[in-house]
Amino acid sequence: MQLTLEFGGGLELLCDSVKIHSIDVDLPAEEKKLTMKHLLAWVRSNLIKERPEMFMKGDTVRPGVLVLVNDCDWELSGQLDTTLENKDVVVFISTLHGG
């Protein structure tokens, strides 16, 4: 599945200062849909190069990270359970200072 990920507000520093990533994620085995939960796990192991705790806390993003799926706050689409579709754009922005 083709997705575009954008990191901003300092989070890009955690993945080699690259802000925009065009990625291709495979559906996890035995699943029909790709959810944000899977995507986060994928991002953590494939894109984040350093200090993963600045991005993740448990299986979700750290407090203070804003997540937009196709320009829409993920709080509106079910957060971790948000289903992703081909060509979706996911944006992560740190709203903490110093970022």
Binding site: C72, S77, G78, T83
Partner: peptide, 14 residues
Amino acid sequence: MDGAHGGEKTKSRL
């Protein structure tokens, strides 16, 4: 957690 509503439902909300 209102995980039940997926993408479609959101789109119908205004």
